[in-house]
């Protein structure tokens, strides 16, 4: 397939399908995240990039025989490996009998929240989740290091003018979106707080929150959105999220327990766990939301810059 637009849309559909597959496999939290991230954010980012780079792929003449060979070899290796695997859905497979039972049986007593995935994520394996937040933070910083451009005020005015005239056409969409955005934000907060009881949590909430802002940006232009949320504020929130998460660990360390041992946060261990999980979920939510917005802003800014350059070139070409 040579049309990259179709390729990206198919990828989005693939992500959405695998998300529904995850629901069928009882992984509701994962499905939620995959739908928000795979089908939402990454598809969106790819579309932005395609508008910058052009949407058709060049035909190549060389035959990728070597690639085929590597893939067939790796694939047959994996198939070979599957022969000794426990069968699908069997309850006494090794993974269900060693570490996992404790999470299922004891987490209510030890952590005190019904969503086992959240208690494993935020308490038993809190350090992995901390690592995950740092990965997102790294990506945000990396994208900024690659794409951020110095602000040039004259160009900004020009873009505002162009955007305003353009958006006259989308009047209906703009009004509907304006009405929707508060609900999306509210939903994000619901997901943030409800993570202990049902599917959801800081990460999904952050992505949904970011989605609302991105929607606003797409319809009202980057400059308007920048007025609402400026770059250094976003950076501050991103850093604060990581620091909040880390500080929970440091406080429990100062209280004489191990890093991320929430039991030490309050006199009652379960209350301590609740407090710890609440705080770190906020840390996750802040960092994820702000990094997603930051990445999108940087992408959109590049796109705007390139389009401006093209416009200037066109005008110059016409005058010649």
């Amino acid at each position: 397939m040579k049309d990259l637009f179709a390729v990206v849309m198919l990828l989005g559909i693939y992500s959405l399908l695998s998300a529904s597959f995850f629901v069928a496999m009882d992984a509701v939290d994962v499905a939620f995240t995959e739908a928000a991230v795979g089908a939402g954010i990454s598809t969106l980012l790819m579309l932005v990039v395609i508008t910058i780079t052009g949407r058709s792929e060049k035909t190549t003449r060389h035959k990728p025989l070597l690639a085929l060979l590597v893939v067939v070899f790796t694939g047959s290796m994996l198939i070979y490996g599957t022969f000794d695997m426990p069968y699908f859905g069997i309850a006494d497979a090794p993974i269900h009998s060693h570490v996992a039972p404790r999470y299922i049986q004891e987490s209510m007593k030890e952590v005190g929240i019904p969503n086992i995935v959240t208690s494993v994520l935020a308490s038993y394996r809190a350090f992995d989740t901390f690592g995950e937040v740092v990965v997102i933070f790294t990506a945000g910083i990396g994208v900024m290091a690659l794409l951020s451009v110095g602000r040039r005020p004259e160009e900004n005015e020009k873009t505002t003018a162009i955007d305003d005239s353009m958006h006259e056409q989308y009047l209906v969409i703009r009004i509907v979106t304006k009405m929707l955005i508060p609900f999306i934000l509210l939903y994000a907060l619901y997901v943030q707080f409800h993570g202990d009881f049902g599917p959801g949590g800081g990460f999904q909430a952050g992505v949904i929150f970011a989605a609302a802002i991105i929607l606003y940006t797409m319809l009202f232009g980057l400059t308007t959105a920048r007025k609402v949320i400026n770059q250094s504020f976003i950076q501050f929130i991103a850093a604060a999220g990581v620091l909040l998460y880390g500080c929970v660990g440091i406080v429990s360390m100062l209280n004489g327990a191990n890093f991320f041992d929430y039991n030490a946060l309050a006199s009652d261990p379960v209350a301590g766990q609740h407090l710890g999980i609440l705080l770190i979920e906020w840390g996750v939510g802040c960092t994820v939301a702000s990094v997603m917005i930051m990445i999108f802003f940087n992408f959109a800014e590049r796109r705007e810059m390139q389009q401006n350059n093209e416009k200037i070139n066109n005008i110059e070409g016409d005058s010649l």
Binding site: M25, D26, A27, D29, V30, T33, E34, V37, G38, I41, S42, L45, M46, V49, I52, T53, I95, H96, V99, A100, Y103, I104, I116, V117, V120, L121, R125, D128, T129, G131, E132, V135, I136, T138, A139, G142, V143, L146, L147, F203, V288, I295, N298, F299, R302
Partner: peptide
């Protein structure tokens, strides 16, 4: 169902989107 793989994959999805974003930035 076993919750542990779910937790691991939540983390891995985030890592995946981080890689995608950085890769796309490089493409630009």
């Amino acid at each position: 169902s076993n919750p542990l793989p779910h937790v691991l994959i939540l983390t891995a999805i985030v890592v995946g989107v981080a890689t995608t974003a950085l890769g796309l930035a490089l493409v630009i």
